[in-house]
Design a protein around this nucleic acid. Structure first.
Length: 541
RNA sequence: GCGCGCGUAGCUCAGUUGGAUAGAGCGUCUGCCUCCGGAGCAGAAGGUCGUGGGUUCGAGUCCCGCCGCGCGCACCA
């Protein structure tokens, strides 16, 4: 049993004896200030009202009844308005390092998802051009969220939705056709809303069919762009389980079926030749058109049909990662799903929205790339700063904030660059074992006496390592990878600090063995954390 | 105008779902370091958490108003 669990159990026992109401949560917190001990609880303050006693009096009674010895507690103090602060015996703290090594790659995982299916949809770029930086942020976010869910026991399916039907694809085909004709010396113009990037010329050049065969031209263009996007994703190290084509929703009649079902629900009406859905019944600020007066559907109808398939495919939970410029779709899609009244919960799907990305170089905003013309591609970034740095930079800020991607910082191989700082901490821990092996030192740590890990830097580092599973759980539950990123930065800082202050190799064998355990435990946590974020943990830099 | 989001150190941002004296990096200043990798370390200065109310033992965190910024407001996607 971990020290914290022992304390929690003992507090629970006493709380019951004092007559605490059923279901009283005993929460242990890591105090911000180390002067407040290793663990603290506010349970006495929580109990003050139901027990009708002063918080400090309750705290005193808990302290008196606490079996400190059994729980590995060295001292308990009552502080402030009624906090109970616990100080553990150093060897009890140190013992955690051994458990971390034993758990290895599995350290930090839990099964709170109970193996239930969850669908995580992200990127979902239209096949009309290379992926841009916003897609990169989505790819990093979506993939990390998916991995975090896997680490917490969910059966995750990564899904990519291709909007391969509709007006923009026609524009794409028309744009390629214009470049094709142009290359043959004929006058042609890219249509309004068409695509102007260099890649359109490349697609035109690789097309061998007739310019007037629009069907063939369109399919060629989509194929080429899907291939290109696949290469971008491969370079980023993102793999999807499913690619879902919008066109298949039309082909299979699912769109028509959805419209019929919505019409039957009585939530629609005809107005000025169009078919409307009463999305205002579900919190929208105005009703939305489903079928335009020209007979075609607006985009959100296939979106609703698409999400119905997620539900029917057995995903009781679905998460959509999207740019914040799409936030209005959330209300509409949910409204459509509710109107169908087929048992889909109100908050389905969950949305993780992220703000825009600005790329800067030399303090100036970068706006264009060679191939795409009007925007920076994710490939530009990966080529320039590497996959790991791109991923980390996209994950270190919460999605709610706009993100400034500083290319110079991401490239720099110094401690100013957070991803290098963390990877370096990992490499250093590995370096100890590498150098040890070179010097012929046995790095066998069996039977190490961990009570020798008593230096303040060691105790602090171990406590941080002990917090890793809770950080993973919190990060996954909130769908916020940046929490884990912050945690890793702090843990790397503590690892660097320890490394510089205390040597491992060259110490008396018992102390060295204990410190080797700590070095390995730190390595395990940093490696597991980086892996949860989709970032590699090199053994040397 | 309406909806969503965001205002925390000079800059870039964290902030353990409501806890104790609000933190980190960069920058600035003062020192240190022959080392398992100097891609280093110790310390200092720096704050009315946009603003005004409210909720309660306690608010950066929750609620309301106001100010500022971003995004969205099509029978586009």
């Amino acid at each position: 049993m971990k020290p914290a669990d022992a304390i929690r159990a003992e507090l629970g026992r006493i709380a019951r004896e004092l007559g605490a109401p059923e279901g009283t949560d005993v929460i242990l917190e890591r105090p911000r200030d180390v002067a407040h001990g290793d663990w603290a609880t506010n349970v006495a303050m929580i109990l003050a009202r139901p027990l009708r006693q002063k918080p400090r009096d309750i705290a005193e009674r808990i302290r008196a009844q606490f079996r400190a010895e059994d729980a590995g507690v060295a001292a308990i103090e009552v502080a402030g308005p009624g906090f109970l602060n616990f100080r553990l015996r150093p060897e009890v703290i140190a013992s955690v390092a051994g458990e971390i090594i034993a758990a290895g790659d599995g350290y930090g995982r839990n099964d709170s998802g109970r193996g239930e299916k969850v669908n995580v949809e992200f990127v979902s770029a239209n096949p009309t051009g290379p992926l841009h930086v916003g897609h990169g942020r989505q790819a990093a976010l979506g993939d990390a969220i998916a991995t975090l869910l896997e680490h917490t026991g969910w059966d995750v399916s990564r899904e990519y939705y291709y909007n391969d039907a509709g007006a923009q694809i026609e524009n794409l085909a028309a744009s390629v056709r214009a470049r094709l004709l142009e290359s043959k010396g004929q006058a042609a113009q890219i249509p309004e809303g068409g695509y102007h990037g260099e890649y359109i010329r490349e697609i035109a050049a690789s097309y061998s069919g007739e310019a007037d065969d629009v069907e063939s031209l369109r399919s060629h263009a989509v194929t080429e762009l899907r291939r290109e996007q696949d290469l971008d994703l491969a370079a980023f190290g993102v793999e999807f389980d499913t690619y879902y084509l919008e066109s298949s929703l039309y082909d299979s009649g699912k769109v028509d079926k959805t419209v019929e079902a919505l019409t039957r629900s009585g939530k629609t009406y005809e107005h000025e030749g169009a078919l409307w859905l009463r999305t205002t019944d579900y919190g929208d600020d105005k009703d939305r058109v489903m079928r335009k007066s020209d007979g075609t559907y607006t985009y959100f109808v296939p979106d609703v049909a698409y999400h119905v398939t997620k539900w029917e495919r057995g995903f009781k939970r679905a998460i959509d990662v999207q740019g914040a410029d799409h936030h209005s779709t959330a209300t509409r899609v949910r409204a459509g799903l509710q109107a169908l009244a087929i048992g889909i919960p109100e908050g389905y799907p969950e949305y993780v929205l992220h703000q825009l990305v600005t790329v800067t170089r030399g303090g100036e905003e970068v706006k264009i790339s060679k191939r795409a013309g009007s925007y920076v591609t994710v490939r530009d970034l990966i080529d320039e700063v590497g996959r790991d740095a791109v991923r980390f930079f996209f994950l270190m800020r919460k999605g709610d904030s706009p993100l400034i991607f500083d290319v110079d910082l991401a490239r720099s191989q110094s401690e100013e660059n957070p991803v290098y700082y963390i990877q370096m901490a990992h490499a250093r821990m590995c370096g100890i074992f590498r150098v040890g092996a070179e010097q012929g030192i046995s790095t066998d740590v069996s039977g190490a006496d961990l009570s020798l890990l008593a230096e303040p830097e060691e105790q602090q580092l171990i406590k941080a390592l002990e917090d890793y599973p809770a950080e993973v759980a919190a990060s996954a539950a909130a769908l916020e990878p940046q929490r884990l990123a912050s945690y890793l930065l702090e843990t790397a800082r503590l690892a660097h600090l320890w490394y510089h202050k205390h040597h491992v190799l060259g110490q008396e064998p018992p102390l060295m063995r204990a410190r080797l355990v700590l070095a390995r435990a730190a390595r395990v946590v940093i490696a597991n954390g980086l892996s949860a974020l989709g970032i590699t943990a090199p053994e040397r830099m």
